[in-house]
Design a protein around this nucleic acid. Structure first.
Lengths: 144, 144
DNA sequence: TCATAATTGCAATAATGTTGCATTTAACAT
DNA sequence: ATGTTAAATGCAACATTATTGCAATTATGA
């Protein structure tokens, strides 16, 4: 079991949620695959490993994970990914490679501040930042 | 007919697309409502005005509008909005009020540059920026 | 090992998307 | 004006995704 999965399990326990087989399985697929997965993607992948989860269960698990910041919904694709950055409050930034789908999460205090300021100039009080840059990752760029 | 709708119609014509009743109707709802609408939202709204469009038609119209940059898909909600900024290449930024749903599109060269630089530091070549800040708009903030 | 609340599975249904093909319509030439 | 034609729409059928209430199961702490 990977460190990230173990950490997530600890968070579940700490918050009083049960550590069930379905929850562990979803954590593990997300960690394994490292790309955005829809609820049904997850169901299909697990089924390939001979594991069956009802789709309703998966929906509920993903809801919970998002609430606990263990997973994020990737906006451009609608899929879910495991969170990789800790302690980032109110901010979620991704780079997505349009060739291979590779995904990199990053943080930037500078960007957050600038976004906040811009918003405040029009009287808007920002609580949460989402941003996704799409482009070509270094590997794919070399191959071109 | 609003200026924005008229402009959009001109773009359609200029690109060789027909200016049909369904396309005009979709443009007008989007312009009227000024918040993200799903295809079925649009169908429901039009039906309330006694106008009927098949949902398939609406899907196709929205696809076209997005290609021509006449509309955008708002990532966090999945709805579609009329584009309000001209000449912004490869960038789409929104502020969404979590109280009233009000929506403001904005642009920022500074943010784009910073995002590009951050990406390049990890070898990533950025082509398109999406960002959505959610929070409270000035009106709703006053009422609180 | 037992009790119990939380979690999962199931069934039914709703909502959203997609495809191929017949019909209609806007645009253009006459 | 009218006819022609390619483009656009509507329709039917279907596929996929999402939601709800309730019964069965299971992780947890005593």
């Amino acid at each position: 079991m990977s460190r990230v999965v173990r950490d997530s399990i600890q968070i579940l326990q700490a918050q009083g949620y049960k550590v069930t087989k379905p929850r562990r399985q979803v954590l593990e697929v997300l960690e394994e695959v490292q790309r955005p997965l829809s609820p049904y993607d997850i169901q299909r992948l697990l089924r390939q490993e001979g594991k069956y989860l009802n789709h309703v269960t998966i929906y509920r698990i993903l809801d919970l994970f998002c609430c606990l910041n263990l997973a994020h919904k990737v906006l451009s694709s609608g899929g879910f990914v495991k969170c990789s950055l800790e302690g980032k409050g109110g901010c979620h930034r991704l780079m997505v490679c349009r060739c291979c789908g590779a995904l990199q999460e990053f943080a930037s205090e500078g960007l957050c501040q600038e976004e906040n300021e811009l918003a405040q100039n029009s009287g808007f009080h920002t609580e949460y930042h989402l941003s996704e840059s799409s482009g070509v990752c270094s590997d794919c760029y070399k191959k071109q």
